[in-house]
């Protein structure tokens, strides 16, 4: 007589997360804000360092979007990301206008940070009005702080992107190379998606912050690659009001900066995309292949 062995309950192996940044939301905001502010002031730095600051700023913005949207905005997550970018562009315009005061041309522009602070004030005001019982009454805890952070993070992101592409924060240079070439339209949409997409894609019952942050880093990497590509294009053509005048390489420093940023961006994207897929596979209860679609017999 054969005895069927009792089914051994397999102990579910607890797979830990493969990726952890040891910072909570407040620390992340402080670190990202300070690093991005220092990098945005010194425009002479290599593009890769600005790219790292850009990634940190995106992580900060993503955290603010996440802690606001957790309570349900009623209009979907995209709205708050677009709001941050809208504030960011206005703040960046003011910062760029102020940049010529107290700075060294081509090296450091400390006055741009006034634009960041002014946008923080506008964000705070709109947060207070949105959360006030007598006005819009959204009743989201700490919305005021989140909207202020979003305004500041958005401004820092747009300023960093302008600084990467232009290499300086001179208003005329930015207008010629970013606004008049139409690059700002791409920046607007890409920044929107960098801020809103991580939480919008990951939200759900089992959302966790580490996994959402991987998506944020991954998108920031893609944006770095795009900006590097834009730098290569801008360095090899001399643009005059949109028409290609000559195809001479006018700035080799910018070309190599662009190439290095492109390689950095693609590497960051590939690494974190792989890590994200792996984390999803690990944290899922089970991953099974369904095979090809079967026809009914």
């Amino acid at each position: 007589m054969t005895v069927t062995p009792a089914v051994v309950e397999e102990e579910p192996t607890k797979k830990g997360l493969s990726f952890k940044l040891p910072l909570d939301e407040t620390e992340m905001g402080l670190v990202a804000g300070i690093v991005a502010a220092i990098v945005v002031v010194f425009t002479g730095l290599p593009a890769v360092i600005k790219g790292i600051a850009l990634i940190l700023a995106f992580l900060w913005g993503m955290d603010s979007v996440r802690k606001t949207s957790k309570y349900g905005l009623g209009t979907g997550v995209p709205s708050i990301g677009v709001l941050a970018t809208g504030f960011g562009v206005v703040g960046a315009l003011v910062g760029l206008a102020l940049a010529k005061y107290g700075g060294i041309d081509g090296v450091a522009y400390p006055a741009v940070l006034i634009g960041v602070i002014l946008m923080g004030v506008i964000g705070l005001v709109s947060g207070i009005l949105s959360n006030n019982e007598k006005v819009i009454a959204m009743k989201i805890p700490r919305l005021e702080r989140a909207m202020m952070e979003l305004g500041m993070a958005g401004t820092l992101i747009i300023l960093l992107e302008c600084s990467i592409v232009t290499g300086s924060l001179n208003f005329d240079a930015v207008v010629n190379q970013v606004m008049n070439t139409g690059l700002i339209a791409f920046m607007f949409i890409f920044t929107c998606f960098g801020l809103l997409h991580p939480y919008n894609a990951c939200l759900g019952p089992d959302e966790n912050r580490e996994r959402t942050r991987m998506v944020a880093v991954e998108i920031a990497g893609l944006i770095c690659a795009f900006l590097g590509f834009a730098m290569i294009i801008l360095s090899s053509f001399s643009w005059e009001l949109g028409s290609i005048v000559s195809v001479t390489i006018s700035s080799p420093w910018k070309l190599w900066n662009g190439v290095s940023l492109l390689i950095f961006g693609v590497a960051v994207w590939a690494y974190f995309f792989r890590m994200f897929i792996k984390a999803c596979m690990d944290e899922a209860y089970e991953t099974v292949g369904t095979g090809m679609i079967k026809t009914i017999e």
């Binding site: 709001l83 970018t85 809208g86 562009v89 315009l93 709109s126 606004m179």
Partner: peptide, 21 residues
């Protein structure tokens, strides 16, 4: 023209979103 377009879009967007909230 480019700066004016992106600037007006950026002021338009927060107003529309606050209305949405």
């Amino acid at each position: 023209a480019g700066t004016a377009a992106i600037g007006s879009l950026s002021i338009f967007v927060p107003n529309a979103i606050i209305a949405a909230y």
